[in-house]
Each structure stands twice: as structure tokens, then as C-alpha cells.
């Protein structure tokens, strides 16, 4: 069964929220943040980034706080922070589960 976007965040969505956890940013700042913090492993395309920003704004995960010329600055909301934390928890649980299985495998060997 495929994942349903916005119920479970995709990797790009997760990183966008992660970037905004660190403070207010515009789209270009977010793209740079993701490049920098993933050493280029996660590359977010412009169409993907702006679709996510649009959807997040609609879902009230983020809100636009400033428009300066072409630059729009966003900030994460409480709802967005909750979504980010829920996804973080889910991912951590994945790691815990994976570690558990790995230890069992190692014990067997």
C-alpha cells in the first residue's frame, strides 16, 4: 500500500519542516538548508519545494510572515511542529525496531 502524502510526511516534506524548525526562511533558504544538512543526499527540486510550501500553508503547518519583492518568508506553526515531531517519533521508532532486529540477527550468528 503506498503512503498517503500529508498523513505520513515524505522525506522532502520532513526536511522542509526540519528547516523551518530552525527559524523563519524563504524557499531558497530552505533548499540551501536541505542541501547543506544532507550533504546533497536529499535534493529538493523547485517544483517539489513550492508544492510542499503551498500544501503546508493550506494545512496550516506553516504560515507566510513576510513578502519582500520576490521573497516570501515562512514560519512553522504549532500544528506543523506537531506533524514534524510525530514523524520524528515514527522514524525513531523505525530505528529502534530496526536495531532490535539487527541485534537479534547478530545474536543468532
Amino acid at each position: 500500500m503506498p503512503r498517503k502524502a500529508m498523513v505520513i510526511l515524505t522525506e522532502s516534506m520532513f526536511y522542509v519542516l526540519m528547516a523551518l524548525q530552525c527559524g523563519e526562511m524563504c524557499g531558497i533558504d530552505i533548499a540551501e538548508f536541505i542541501d547543506r544538512h544532507t550533504n546533497g543526499r536529499v535534493q529538493i527540486g523547485p517544483a517539489t519545494l513550492y508544492t510542499i510550501l503551498g500544501k503546508f500553508e493550506k494545512e496550516k503547518y506553516i504560515k507566510e510572515i513576510n513578502v519582500e519583492g520576490r521573497k516570501r518568508t515562512y514560519v512553522i506553526t504549532e500544528k506543523g511542529r506537531d506533524a514534524y515531531n510525530a514523524e520524528l517519533l515514527r522514524l525513531r521508532q523505525c530505528i529502534v525496531d530496526s536495531d532490535k532486529v539487527q541485534s537479534e540477527l547478530e545474536r543468532k550468528v
Binding site: 503506498p2 503512503r3 502524502a5 515524505t10 522525506e11 522532502s12 516534506m13 535534493q43 529538493i44 527540486g45 523547485p46 517544483a47 517539489t48 508544492t51 510542499i52 500544501k55
Partner: peptide, 8 residues
């Protein structure tokens, strides 16, 4: 331009 098929 689109890097996430689910977002697309």
C-alpha cells in the same frame, strides 16, 4: 524540477 513523485 520534481524530485518527489508523491508530492508531484
Amino acid at each position: 524540477l520534481n524530485t518527489d513523485p508523491e508530492v508531484q
